[in-house]
Amino acid sequence: MNYNWNWKIFFEPNPMGTGTYLDMLLSGLALTIKTALLAWVIALAVGSIVGVLRTLPSRGAYWFGFCWVEFFRNMPLLVQLFLWFFVLPEMLPRAAGLWLKQLPNAPFWTAAIGVGLFMSARVAVQLQAGIGSLPRGQRMAATALGLTTVQGYRYVLLPMAFRIILPPLTSEFLNTIKNTAVAITIGLIELTGQARSMQEFSFQVFEAFTAATILYLLTNAIVVTAMRFLERYVAIPGYITGK
């Protein structure tokens, strides 16, 4: 391969005057994490509500949950981001649209909310499956003791359901981190975006992508380890979950 490797490039100053190329990548990583965390909070909150709706006896609630999931699951994430970023401001009343367009950090907010809503559909499906996997008698026992529906979910069903779906939720969180990279298309300069700009400025393609790759792998490893600890922390003595 006649490619001129130059690993020292990371310690050379970047043309933006924000320190070295390495600083540039690290700031990208920070933005990736910030976006992913906000998106994950949204995904968990919205996804939990929608997931619960899909398990209620009410027909209307079920249908709302069904439509929510289908809407966000059947469109590419990229198209969804375009809808929120380019289309939504035009569909709103003029003043509101203008305000949206002039919002500072618009790519960040769009990415966090867009990825968050996209992931909320997947969280909802996981939670629905988790609640569905509990024995029917658990809900009955809660009801028979006089707990209301809300109390039954709060104290009996959800604590078990979330424990059961913790492993799949871990991979959904990892997906959230990865999915923030799609926001490069609406101008969010996160980790992949910074690697791309480093490549454009320095022509050191493979160094840039290698570094980004390593940073993603590290992030993954940290998340997986943290979640293992969490799983152990909330594990119930004597209770064997699925696998």
Binding site: G137, Q138, M140, A141, L145, P159, Y239
Partner: peptide, 20 residues
């Protein structure tokens, strides 16, 4: 109903203790 049920004790075939 919750108030009524709280005064009626029930024991199930599969115990239905809350595992957590």
């Amino acid at each position: 109903l919750p108030k009524l049920r709280s005064r009626v004790g029930m024991v199930f075939q599969h115990f239905e203790l809350f595992p957590h």
